[in-house]
Simulated assay, not measured.
Amino acid sequence: MSFSSLVGSSSSSSHPLVPYGWDADWEAEFAPHAEQGLLPGRVVRVDRGQCDVVTAGGVVRADTAFVTPHDPLRVVCTGDWVAVEPGGNPRYVRAYLPRRTSFVRSTSSKRSEGQILAANVDHAVIALSLAVELDLGRVERFLALAWESGAQPVVVLTKADLVPDPVTLAHLVHDVETSAPGVPVLTVSALHGEGLDVLVALVGSGTSVLLGQSGAGKSTLANALVGEDVMDVRAARDVDGKGRHTTTTRNLLALPAGGVLIDTPGLRGVGLFDAGSGVGQVFTEIEELAERCRFHDCAHETEPGCAVRSAVESGELSERRLESYRKLMRENQWIVAKTDARVRAELRRDWKRKGAEGRAAMEIKRGRFQ
Rank of each mutant, 00 (worst) to 15 (best):
F3Q: 12
S4G: 15
S5Y: 04
L6Y: 09
L6W: 09
S10L: 04
S12D: 12
V18R: 07
G21R: 07
D25P: 00
E27I: 02
A28Y: 01
E35Y: 06
L38R: 10
V44S: 15
V53K: 07
V54G: 12
G58F: 07
V60N: 03
T64C: 13
T64S: 03
F66K: 15
F66H: 13
H70C: 00
P72Q: 08
L73M: 06
V75P: 06
T78K: 01
T78V: 14
D80F: 00
W81L: 15
W81R: 15
A83V: 10
N89Y: 05
R91V: 06
S102V: 01
S102A: 05
R105E: 04
E113F: 14
Q115N: 02
L117P: 00
L117D: 00
A119D: 10
N120F: 05
H123F: 05
V125C: 05
V132H: 03
L136S: 02
L143K: 03
W147I: 04
Q152R: 15
P153N: 08
P153D: 05
P153I: 07
A160R: 01
D161V: 06
L162A: 05
A170D: 15
L172Y: 07
L172E: 09
D175M: 04
V176P: 06
E177L: 09
E177I: 03
P181V: 09
P181E: 14
G182E: 07
L186S: 07
T187D: 03
V188N: 01
V188S: 03
E194Y: 01
D197P: 07
T207A: 13
V209T: 11
G212H: 06
G215W: 00
L221P: 02
A224F: 00
A224R: 08
V226C: 12
E228Y: 03
D229Y: 01
D229R: 10
D232C: 02
R237E: 10
D238Y: 06
V239I: 10
V239L: 07
G241R: 11
G241Y: 07
K242A: 14
G243C: 05
T246P: 01
P256D: 08
G259L: 09
L261I: 00
P265G: 01
L267G: 04
R268N: 14
G269W: 08
V270T: 15
G271V: 02
L272R: 12
G276P: 01
G276T: 06
G276N: 06
G278V: 11
Q281S: 13
T284K: 07
T284I: 11
T284D: 15
A290M: 08
A290R: 08
E291R: 14
C293G: 11
C293P: 07
A299W: 05
E301N: 08
R309D: 00
A311F: 04
V312T: 11
E316D: 15
L317D: 11
L317W: 13
R320G: 14
L322I: 06
E323T: 13
E323I: 02
S324G: 13
Y325Q: 04
R326K: 14
R326Y: 13
L328E: 03
E331D: 12
Q333S: 12
V336N: 02
K338H: 15
D340E: 08
D340I: 03
R342K: 12
R342A: 10
E346R: 13
R348E: 15
R353Y: 14
G358D: 14
R359Y: 09
A361C: 09
M362S: 14
R368G: 12
R368E: 10
F369L: 08
